[in-house]
């Protein structure tokens, strides 16, 4: 064979090998010690991998990318700021856990009706040191509430109660009504009935009592808490429950339409079905719900109704903030 022929064959083979092998080699060595997580819409697979192991105190290097649309990444029950996971790009992130346990990571940018199903877990273990956090049962469990039962408000105000007007009656109000325990355990309608039957408040009319209810509810939150609740609501709830809480979010119709069909389990039996999201602006419904009940619904979720379970995602503080914000659809001047 001529030398020129030899050389040209070598050049062709070298060219082919370089373009095929160099990327693969770089990919292999570059990926050592790094977990690469691909995000897809839940319908097409969600996160993969969706279960990761890590060790307490050992930095976990993550590379996040999306294979379809914009996603986000955050760790539940933590104050970690969410990072965006744009399609076709790599987002690098290093996490260090100081307590063992099972952490949930979840998508933070709405990516369709099943956005909230896009979750995964990080199993963080330690070498003997530190025990998992003791878990205390949530309030709705200790109060033994049936969070799936209807909770109509037996009474509703004729006009919008005002916390500011209610504040004028503080002198008359027995202090037991202003405790956090009271606020969390009772619905506004129950609180109204308690106030109505309280001899200390006999002189007040119904509207004034409702104003006091508004005041009690306001005194259990702060402007910062409400602002945080508002933001969390916009990011996590508004897509279904509507930006104004009226249950008419952009996915509401799809949920309602999924209805019947969504209720069949694998055996064909009917279970809970997807339904239209709750309208938080309806006093007949909302004023009959206690914060503990709403907490239960939020952290446990709607079990097949389309309502996600947020327990592994939100800290208690965040959930209470969202709940406080939900009542603000009924009470004015709460943020004042």
């Amino acid at each position: 064979m001529r030398r020129s022929e030899m050389l040209s064959r070598m050049l062709v083979i070298a060219g082919v090998l370089i373009v095929l092998l160099v990327p693969l080699a770089v990919r292999f060595y570059d990926g050592q010690g790094i977990v690469e997580i691909h995000g897809r819409m839940a319908e097409t697979g969600g996160w993969s991998p969706s279960a990761i192991k890590a060790q307490v105190g050992v930095p976990l290097h993550l590379r996040l990318t999306s294979d379809d649309v914009m996603h986000g990444f955050a760790i539940g029950q933590s104050e970690m700021a969410a990072v965006d996971v744009p399609p076709g790009k790599m987002t690098e992130l290093t996490l260090t856990f100081d307590k063992p346990g099972t952490y949930t990571y979840y998508c933070t940018r709405w990516c369709g009706l099943n956005h909230w199903r896009m979750r995964g877990t990080i199993e963080v273990t330690s070498d003997g040191l530190g025990a998992p956090q003791p878990v205390s049962p949530p309030l709705y469990v200790t109060l033994n509430l049936d969070i799936d039962a209807p909770h109509p408000a037996p009474v509703t105000p004729l006009e919008r109660p005002s916390a500011l007007r209610g504040a004028a009656f503080t002198a008359l109000l027995p202090p037991s009504y202003l405790t956090t325990d009271y606020y969390r355990s009772y619905s506004p309608a129950q609180a109204f009935n308690d106030l109505r039957s309280d001899p200390a408040l006999k002189s007040l009319n119904n509207a004034q009592l409702w104003d006091i209810v508004a005041f009690i509810w306001q005194s259990n939150t702060t402007p910062e808490g409400l602002a945080a609740g508002k933001q969390l609501f916009a990011q996590n709830c508004a897509a279904c429950h509507g930006e104004n809480g009226a249950g008419n979010g952009v996915f509401a119709d799809k949920l309602a339409a999924a209805g019947e069909k969504s209720s069949e389990d694998m055996t064909g039996a009917k279970g809970m079905q997807m339904k239209k999201p709750v309208n938080f602006t309806d006093p007949a419904n909302m004023l009959g719900a206690s914060p503990a009940l709403l907490l239960g619904k939020t952290i446990r979720g709607g079990m097949g109704t389309g309502m996600p379970m947020w327990g592994s995602i939100f800290t208690d503080e965040k959930t209470w903030n969202i709940i406080a914000y939900l009542y603000s659809f009924h009470f004015t001047e709460v943020t004042k």
Partner: peptide
């Protein structure tokens, strides 16, 4: 011509490779 061919072939195979193992997001592939 051969040198151009080699560059083109390498680019062509690189495009095939990236289609198979690169991101499924078209505008970044």
């Amino acid at each position: 011509q051969l040198l151009v061919f080699i560059v083109m072939l390498a680019g062509f195979l690189f495009a095939i490779l990236s289609g198979f193992i690169g991101t499924p997001v078209g505008s970044s592939n």
